[in-house]
Simulated scan of single mutants.
Amino acid sequence: MRIHVEDLHVAYAGRTVVAGAQLVAAEGEITGLVGPNGSGKSTLLRTVYRHLRPTAGRVLLAGTDLRELAPARAARHIAALPQERGSDFELTVREVVAMGRTPYKRAFAGEDAGDRETVARALADAGMADQAGRRFTALSGGERQRVLLARAFAQQPDVLVLDEPTNHLDVRHQVELLALLRAARRTALVALHDLNAAASVCDRLHVLCAGTVVASGTPREVLTPALLAEVFGVRAAVVDHPLTGDPLIAFDHRTPAGAEPGAEVRA
């Protein structure tokens, strides 16, 4: 299913955080949101998975305003992996993943054979089938991320919404998680800080700055030295990755944008 964010405005605590954002997450593609801290990425995603209500504009799922859907029905279509993730689940890995079946169950209804098969497949897809009996709290950060992604898979959504899914993960776990996302072949809307990861995994990117989408397109179209200087305030060259051919951003970690190379930077 396709997500269309249409002239979205979001404000809270008396401050406008997203102002007139327009973007599309096409069916079956991974669509990335990138931008500096405070640009509105997380706020926009929270509106997509209905944690926040827009002050104006709307989010459409296959042409239907999400606010017209009952919560349980919306949860069958959209699964979220937010930044704020509970780490105190006193549950087993399998029990956490089985929570993804909640939108399909009536109150106090138990698991059926279909639920058990779906949970087993989600655990296998996330590479956590052999950890099903472990306590969630005993897992490493990378393992927890995989379990929470498996919970989202068990929800069988049409759309995955992920907010900084690689945050705090080491390089290996970042690569593994992004590979899982790629292999899922679902419509995905994902916010990423790592621009090189975004260039590698995303089909399209939307760049946010001060709550507004300022650029949209493929990673190669969007991640130009001029945009990186203007939006992120960094000097960078964009080259081809020697292993994958994806755009690879080489940052100048010595000189801010606008300064002459070799100039002394004073604190």
Results as ranks from 00 to 15, higher is better:
242 P>S: 02
237 A>W: 07
244 T>D: 09
234 V>N: 08
209 C>H: 14
239 V>Q: 14
221 E>W: 01
241 H>G: 09
238 V>R: 04
213 V>T: 09
225 P>V: 07
246 D>F: 05
232 F>I: 05
237 A>Q: 15
241 H>M: 10
238 V>W: 05
213 V>I: 13
232 F>R: 06
201 V>I: 15
234 V>R: 08
212 T>C: 14
228 L>D: 08
237 A>M: 12
209 C>L: 14
238 V>D: 01
240 D>G: 04
210 A>H: 11
237 A>D: 15
232 F>E: 02
223 L>T: 00
221 E>P: 02
240 D>P: 04
228 L>M: 11
200 S>H: 14
200 S>R: 15
225 P>I: 03
231 V>T: 12
213 V>L: 11
215 A>N: 02
216 S>E: 03
242 P>I: 00
197 A>L: 15
233 G>I: 06
220 R>N: 06
209 C>T: 10
233 G>N: 08
224 T>Q: 07
245 G>V: 07
196 N>C: 09
230 E>F: 10
218 T>G: 04
225 P>R: 06
232 F>K: 05
195 L>Q: 02
243 L>K: 10
238 V>F: 03
231 V>H: 06
200 S>A: 14
206 H>G: 04
209 C>P: 00
198 A>G: 11
220 R>G: 03
227 L>A: 10
220 R>S: 08
210 A>G: 07
246 D>C: 14
199 A>T: 05
222 V>P: 01
199 A>P: 03
201 V>G: 09
207 V>I: 08
242 P>G: 03
199 A>N: 11
204 R>I: 01
195 L>T: 01
242 P>T: 00
235 R>Q: 13
219 P>D: 04
196 N>H: 12
224 T>M: 04
229 A>M: 15
206 H>C: 08
200 S>Y: 10
245 G>T: 12
197 A>R: 13
224 T>K: 05
234 V>D: 06
195 L>N: 00
230 E>S: 15
232 F>S: 05
226 A>D: 10
197 A>C: 14
229 A>P: 07
224 T>L: 04
232 F>L: 06
202 C>A: 08
207 V>H: 00
224 T>W: 01
214 V>T: 15
203 D>E: 13
244 T>E: 05
204 R>N: 08
229 A>F: 15
201 V>N: 12
242 P>V: 00
217 G>H: 14
218 T>F: 02
218 T>E: 06
206 H>V: 03
228 L>N: 12
195 L>V: 01
242 P>Q: 04
237 A>S: 14
244 T>Q: 07
212 T>V: 15
206 H>Q: 06
